[in-house]
């Protein structure tokens, strides 16, 4: 099985240095545990993030050097078409670049691969050419999907924590460098939005009992049985749980 881990051009939120995001470190560890040939892939002006990903379990990586302002998606599409991996693992979105989370979706659309979001586990499927994927849903629920290869997945923060960074592994790993000239590729479309320095905006305060329709009920000194009835009725009326057999 051929696996490619996508590494974004993320930056550290404080120092602004190139840094691997936690989700991509989790993706690298997950891919290393999955086995088969695992390669990292990054399109951007520097390979620092890739070097860090090698320390989290990737043996080899491809670095497509492009200029800073160039859209990385066409270069990634060309590379992935040639490499034809079975599984592509990506983080949710970049941190410190565009931060839209659209790149995996654009790749999946261009490569005609199914995309599964919020994945916490990947293991080889029972049949050949299939993979079993565990997807995180709300309220601790999970969905287990058996998917035909090839597939593109994005990682959820509840995936297993990344294996610790190993400096020797990062030094040992090899990065294949390829320079992509910007002339052959269309540059990123001009955005209709104006960019300006960030101003923090406060979030809405979470009010106690907002959206609660009923009035407050206070029962003074009920019998325990009556109290129990009322508690269960409250839970069922508000749709928290169902207790009938």
């Amino acid at each position: 099985m051929k696996t490619v881990v996508l590494v974004s051009g993320a930056r550290h939120p404080v120092s602004r240095r190139p840094a691997l995001t936690r989700l991509e470190a989790q993706a690298a560890s997950l891919a290393a545990k999955l086995g088969g040939t695992v390669r990292g892939l990054h399109a951007g002006p520097s390979d620092d993030q890739l070097r860090e990903a090698l320390g989290h379990g990737l043996g080899e990586a491809d670095w497509l050097e492009i200029e800073d302002r160039v859209d990385p998606v066409p270069a990634l599409i060309d590379h992935l078409k040639a490499a034809a991996p079975d599984i592509v693992i990506a983080g949710r979105r970049g941190e410190g670049t565009g931060d839209t989370g659209l790149v995996p979706y654009a790749l999946a659309e261009a490569l005609d691969m199914p995309i599964i979001a919020d994945v916490v586990g990947v293991s080889p499927g029972a049949g050949s050419g299939t993979v079993s994927i565990e997807q995180a849903l709300k309220k601790g629920a999970r969905r287990r999907l058996v998917v035909q290869l090839p597939v593109l997945v994005t990682i959820h923060p509840l995936a297993p924590p990344p294996s610790p960074f190993a400096f020797a592994a990062a030094r040992r790993g090899t990065i294949r460098h390829e320079r992509i000239e910007a002339t052959g590729l269309p540059t990123a479309k001009p955005s209709p939005f104006v960019e300006r320095p960030y101003r923090a905006r406060p979030k809405m305060m979470r009010q106690a009992g907002a959206g609660q329709a009923g009035e407050k009920a206070v029962l003074v000194g009920p019998t325990p049985e009556e109290a129990a009835e009322r508690i269960l009725a409250f839970l069922e009326d508000n749709g928290i749980r169902r207790y009938s057999a």
């Binding site: 019998t223 508690i231 269960l232």
Partner: peptide
């Protein structure tokens, strides 16, 4: 939203008994 002025130690067994009766 719902307050019950009663000893929790008394309410807990009553709740457990009621849940057993409902069969869940």
């Amino acid at each position: 939203g719902l307050s019950i002025i009663q000893d929790a130690q008394l309410v807990m067994p009553a709740l457990l008994k009621l849940l057993e009766e409902r069969g869940s």
